[in-house]
Simulated scan of single mutants.
Amino acid sequence: MMWPYNPNNAPMYQNYAQAWDQGTYHQIPEEEARQHYQSFVQNAPPQMVQDVHQQYYEQMPPQQRGGLLQGIMNALTQRGYDPRQAGIQETDPYRMSPQDAARLTGYAQQQQPDILHQILGPGGPLGSTGAKLAVAGIAALAAKQFLGGGGGNNSIF
């Protein structure tokens, strides 16, 4: 499990962080990445979860980010939630800022903790390579944050 930080898992964190640095996080086994991602979003402090998502969205190709956000918004709407309740400024997923994208993702997870698994998982509307990359990328970036190399002062160390 990725959170809380466990020194016994340091090699795993280092592997994930290295995968982030080298851009090879697509090689992380999908089920493993999904488990670490779920653990991270459910157990890490909400601000850290939002910061990691925002940092990931800043580096994600806009078209890919828009597709992922469209899926999240559709899933929320289908479940009776208004995505604007997330406090986002822009409702067009292809024009949304990384900050709004992170806010929307956090809101979706609060309302429906398994929403991302449902839309990103096998058989879900976004069970595609791009979605799998997002999960692995965010898990890798979270590991980098844990090791204190997140590029900001919001590391947990």
Rank of each mutant, 00 (worst) to 15 (best):
106 G>A: 05
36 H>S: 05
67 G>E: 08
25 Y>G: 08
61 P>V: 10
38 Q>S: 04
31 E>V: 14
82 D>T: 12
77 T>D: 07
14 Q>Y: 14
89 Q>R: 09
53 H>A: 12
115 I>L: 13
155 S>Y: 06
133 L>G: 08
80 G>W: 03
135 V>P: 03
104 L>P: 00
89 Q>K: 11
104 L>N: 09
50 Q>E: 12
79 R>C: 04
130 G>T: 01
59 Q>F: 08
140 A>Q: 03
137 G>W: 06
83 P>L: 03
12 M>V: 13
130 G>W: 00
8 N>T: 08
156 I>V: 12
24 T>H: 09
130 G>L: 01
60 M>S: 13
14 Q>R: 15
12 M>H: 08
118 Q>H: 08
88 I>C: 03
2 M>E: 13
105 T>A: 09
99 Q>G: 01
3 W>D: 10
118 Q>E: 06
30 E>L: 14
81 Y>S: 14
34 R>V: 06
126 L>S: 09
2 M>P: 06
85 Q>W: 06
68 L>T: 10
4 P>F: 10
25 Y>H: 08
83 P>C: 04
103 R>A: 08
118 Q>G: 05
104 L>W: 03
54 Q>K: 15
103 R>Q: 01
99 Q>Y: 05
45 P>D: 06
96 M>W: 04
99 Q>R: 07
6 N>S: 11
29 P>C: 06
56 Y>K: 07
38 Q>R: 01
17 A>H: 12
149 G>M: 10
107 Y>R: 12
98 P>Y: 04
80 G>V: 08
127 G>F: 10
98 P>K: 11
30 E>C: 07
152 G>P: 01
146 F>K: 03
153 N>E: 08
105 T>H: 11
37 Y>V: 03
30 E>N: 14
114 D>A: 14
132 K>H: 12
51 D>G: 04
82 D>H: 13
114 D>M: 13
151 G>I: 04
26 H>W: 02
21 D>V: 03
83 P>N: 07
29 P>D: 15
123 G>V: 06
115 I>P: 01
2 M>C: 12
33 A>I: 08
88 I>H: 02
17 A>Q: 14
86 A>W: 09
118 Q>N: 05
78 Q>A: 13
56 Y>T: 14
4 P>L: 02
4 P>N: 04
141 L>T: 11
109 Q>H: 04
19 A>E: 13
93 P>M: 04
14 Q>K: 15
50 Q>W: 02
113 P>I: 09
157 F>C: 15
26 H>I: 00
102 A>H: 05
7 P>K: 09
58 E>K: 11
147 L>A: 04
157 F>P: 15
67 G>N: 11
15 N>I: 14
133 L>D: 09
123 G>F: 02
32 E>N: 03
75 A>E: 05
78 Q>K: 10
131 A>K: 00
124 G>P: 01
42 Q>V: 02
47 Q>Y: 09
80 G>Q: 05
16 Y>D: 11
82 D>V: 00
60 M>G: 01
117 H>D: 10
134 A>P: 05
148 G>E: 07
120 L>G: 00
80 G>H: 03
150 G>T: 04
77 T>Q: 12
64 Q>C: 08
130 G>N: 08
54 Q>V: 07
144 K>A: 05
124 G>W: 00
110 Q>Y: 02
88 I>V: 14
55 Q>V: 10
38 Q>I: 01
72 I>M: 10
147 L>P: 06
60 M>D: 13
148 G>N: 11
136 A>H: 05
82 D>N: 15
20 W>F: 14
55 Q>Y: 10
145 Q>K: 10
83 P>A: 09
151 G>M: 12
